[in-house]
């Protein structure tokens, strides 16, 4: 129990993070509103919600630059579908009108041509009492485009964290190799790279799938993706270098030198240069794209994300340990 408590911790963390990552519901949101343009006169609006609980007598209104249009009739079909009838007055100030149902806003729901200098605002603005969210207390943000795939944050992103952690371990071992020429340390460095490449491959494939679902392409020319490709190339080159040197001690030293050199430049490329340049990126947190801070208003993603990262890193270390030990036994056998 003394030395392997962390393996239990890894499993426990992964279990909690995976179950929560898959089970926690998305917060309710309006996902579809039709028609998309309105003109003065009576209009029938079909609203589709996601995880919503539409009910008779719910509040609904149209908002145009702070002015409100009250509905004539709100007809609830089921918990996620409703039909709203409203009479749109002439003279809306802004071309985009928002729809608000049960306190959930669908921004820019309608487009209007022929603007005026304002309407008489109806008596149905935002409710002052708090939204009823009972039963959906702990939810993930519901973002258009992402929707349920926001859960991938807990699966795809930890792959990269784990890879970097393993490559970090590898470099640490490589520095030790330069210090004491230990073949044991060299074997550890090599094992860490092996497992790191596994996580790199997982990160690339899962990233490709998620990218297809959100951006519509498997691969985009993005700093983070370039970084991933460069990382893969560097460590494949590392393995090729190892394969081309027959002498064990020489191999250990040359591989260690290349490993350290490449890792430092890689870290520069992945973390320092993008920050200096503010290069455009589709990934969150770069080039005007919303990151954690905007996406995760009440830390609900983070509460699951950090345990997930910790769990995956521990699992990566576990795999690395297995690999290293089996390599060591193998070398004993060959002797």
């Amino acid at each position: 129990m003394k030395h392997w408590w962390w393996k239990f911790l890894a499993i426990a963390l992964l279990l909690v993070a995976s179950i929560a990552g898959l089970r926690v519901p998305l917060s309710p949101a309006l996902v579809h509103v039709s028609p998309s343009r309105i003109s003065p006169g009576e209009v029938n609006i079909e609203v589709t919600g996601y995880n919503t609980r539409f009910s008779e007598g719910m509040r609904a209104y149209l908002e145009n630059e702070g002015q409100y249009v009250c509905p004539v009739r709100v007809e609830v079909i089921d918990a996620t579908h409703a039909r709203i009838t409203a009479v749109v007055p002439a003279g809306l100030r802004a071309s985009m009108t928002d729809l608000v149902v049960q306190g959930l806003k669908y921004p820019g729901a309608f487009f209007t041509e022929g603007l005026g200098d304002g309407i008489e605002s109806g008596p149905c603005g935002p409710s002052t009492n708090k939204l009823d969210m009972s039963g959906l207390a702990f939810t993930f943000p519901n973002r258009s485009i992402l929707y349920e795939s926001i859960r991938n944050l807990h699966f795809h992103v930890p792959m990269w964290f784990t890879m970097i952690a393993l490559m970090g371990i590898s470099v640490w071992r490589s520095i030790q190799v330069l210090g004491n020429n230990s073949l044991d340390r060299d074997r550890q460095a090599r094992s860490a790279v092996h497992v790191g490449l596994l996580f790199c491959a997982l990160g690339l494939t899962t990233g490709a799938v998620w990218a297809r679902a959100t951006w519509g392409a498997f691969w985009t020319n993005d700093v983070k993706l370039n970084g991933a490709a460069v990382t893969a190339l560097i460590y494949l080159a590392y393995l090729v270098l190892r394969g081309s040197i027959p002498d064990a001690h020489k191999r250990a030293r040359l591989a260690a030198i290349y490993n350290i050199f490449a890792f430092v430049l890689l870290v520069m490329f992945l973390f320092v240069v993008p920050r200096l340049n503010a290069i455009d990126s589709l990934h969150p947190g770069n080039g005007g794209n919303s990151g954690f801070n905007d996406l995760d208003l009440d830390n609900r993603l983070r509460v699951i994300f950090y345990p997930a990262v910790a769990g995956w890193i521990l699992l990566g270390i576990w795999l690395y340990d297995l690999r290293h030990r089996s390599l060591r036994i193998n070398e004993h056998l060959d002797r």
């Binding site: 370039n226 970084g227 460069v230 190339l233 560097i234 080159a237 090729v240 270098l241 081309s244 040197i245 020489k250 040359l254 030198i257 290349y258 050199f261 490449a262 430049l265 890689l266 520069m268 490329f269 240069v273 340049n277």
Partner: peptide, 26 residues
């Protein structure tokens, strides 16, 4: 490194390209 590994130009390209790529992009 490539010279010490005793393998000529091929290894140089494999090792050097990923290292120079970030620099090239910048």
């Amino acid at each position: 490194i490539a010279a010490r590994a005793g393998n000529g130009l091929g290894l140089m390209a494999i090792l050097g390209f990923p290292i120079v790529l970030p620099m090239l992009l910048a």
